[in-house]
Nucleic acid binder design. Structure first.
Lengths: 196, 196, 196, 196
DNA sequence: ACATAAGCGAGACGGTACGTCTCGTCTTCTG
DNA sequence: CAGAAGACGAGACGTACCGTCTCGCTTATGT
């Protein structure tokens, strides 16, 4: 029996040092958190990571790409998709992790990531498909289920409701509007009919 | 006899050349639309406008300020702030120009501006103060008036309603969701109680 | 009467700062003398001269060009061309300044200059015509005069004798052979018949 | 039983590949002739020779050493050192190969090598020790022998005569002076007393 | 009427970051 | 173990840009 040798192409030469990967990303995240995007300099990252500049450019072809990747990796964007039958609760529990991140230390990083998403079409597609898309589709599914159950009027605008969580949370994050815990409730109150 | 010394301060010496103002802003807008914020360079603007750099810095104290002003002026963001007493109509009429621009040829520039706003903290403050702030405040005023008139329940979330137009429109623009004329109606339908 | 305004083209803009010219050349010479060609770095020159790198590159398009020019200017290559009727004395007095320079602190710089001469054909022509050429031609003239006077045999190889001073001195300098005062006498003794 | 451990040290393991030696030197010479010393890069040599960089550094400890060796081997600078008892003939026969090379296709490489020798101190030492030194010393030996034989006056300047061939030939090559066959005779005629 | 204050085009200046390149070493895998 | 491939730390190179600063000239005002 032959093991498929195409899966890992067995690259010749010395393999990339994983410790460098980590050091670079960590240094980038640190500098980014401390001084913002323009405060990240390649020489700075290299120095802080104890790494040559070439070692960075071997992995990322530009500062923008480096920062995006650092943030993406640093902020593990994987969420659960709940479906309990209680639309309000499901929506709130889906919004919660995003709210937390947009409120925490990673906020800048998150926003930065959203920014680069727009500058790199490929990144956008990948991101939308794998992260945003699923959540949006799941919310649409939840809303339609609620309509079928009779919890929501038949003429509810499922599509627009599905956009509301992302739209409001990002909007608040971007414009530095208050991001307290009550916000989630206010959002569902606004876009869903009050339960009688 | 009264000398109006406040209106136009009657500066001595040669007055600023209005043609320069126009040339500078136009060159800035062109470069911004073509290459984004970082593609705008002061030397580039000066060259394209046929103007010395000092002439630019005499008007704007930094690149961020210049770009903000250029986009603001170029996109005519000084919209009318209607107050007819019909909240639905007022909201729709306030959203219309933004929708049109986000749909039109300037869409790219608008989105890029929003993007760059996030990359450069200096840009963000400028933008928020001069562009966003007034509209948001006006919508809040409209909603509160509607509540006072009894057109809206007393417990309506005026603040959140005021965010809805911007939040949804930008969200749709950024994620390439449909931007048809019906969108405006759907938004107000979602966040305002249906008129009985 | 109209002064011809074409002579000095009245360049627009701020004129180059002569203090920078001086500072740059001096810093270059210093570093070159201390650490050799590879010890000259553009950042180092800039720092030592208290000048931005752009200010250097505005004047010299590369490190090589900068160093050549620094050496050329620093080592004022203008010599007298004596003609006393005493060939031995004339030759020695023509060799003396070159010997001194090749022996002194500028030695490295001189050699360096000779090197760059070979790398840049244009520089070579200019140099040969204005500096080397004249001296070589003058020596040929002196030798021919000596032959006419009968101080030298009629079949003397004037051309080769004219090369001897340069050939030997540079050879000694390049190969770190002794450059004492006696050398000049030894050279003329070798290539000129001993006076009886 | 005696094991000859001195002649070929009988190294354990795989022996060095002679094909690598050749490929490395050839690639180095090619690059050197085409782009000069600074145009030779270790990565470039490795790529062109189809060889790993370690394979080069196992043979030569630095770029300077590699280039020196390449030029020395390529130009076959290990000339014979004749000693026939006829000083004129010996000198001419020692100059001949250098003249030929300085006239031939390798002229550029030779001159460039001499040039680069001066730019990189490391190069200079290598070159002088291994190439120049031996020949100079041999000529000195020949001249002293001629003096002992009485073919040359006792007060002849052996050291300076020993420099003449190199000094004049390189001087002519560098300054594009005529390099015809007669040159060799003219040089010995100038620095050696005519045979009566 | 003419000095003076300011605007203007051009471009030099100090500083800083970028992205590329090379050197000489180190690390892996294959023959 | 040699060799091919190539990653690694260090650091110089030459470019681009920012925001400031001179130049020499032009244009209004105000006395």
């Amino acid at each position: 029996m032959v093991i498929s040798e195409h899966d890992v192409p067995v690259r010749a030469g010395r393999p990339r040092d994983p410790a460098c990967d980590a050091a670079i990303l960590q240094a980038t995240l640190d500098l980014f958190a401390e001084h913002g995007y323009s405060g990240v300099s390649m020489d700075g990252v290299a120095a802080r990571a104890g790494v040559g500049k070439a070692t960075i450019y071997r992995r990322y072809s530009s500062k923008a790409e480096l920062v995006v990747e650092a943030v993406r990796c640093g902020a593990q964007l994987e969420d659960r998709l709940p479906d309990t039958g209680d639309l309000r609760a499901d929506l709130i529990s889906m919004m919660r992790p995003l709210l937390d991140r947009l409120r925490g230390d990673d906020a800048k990083a998150m926003v930065m990531f959203a920014v680069e998403r727009l500058r790199e079409p490929e990144l956008a597609e990948e991101f939308d498909r794998s992260v945003i898309g699923k959540k949006r589709e799941h919310i649409r599914h939840l809303v339609r289920s609620a309509i079928e159950r009779g919890d929501l009027p038949a003429d509810s605008d499922a599509d627009l409701i599905a956009e509301a969580p992302g739209a409001f949370l990002w909007h608040h994050a971007i414009y530095n509007l208050p991001m307290d815990d009550a916000l989630l409730g206010r959002i569902v109150d606004l876009v869903l009919p009050r339960p009688t």
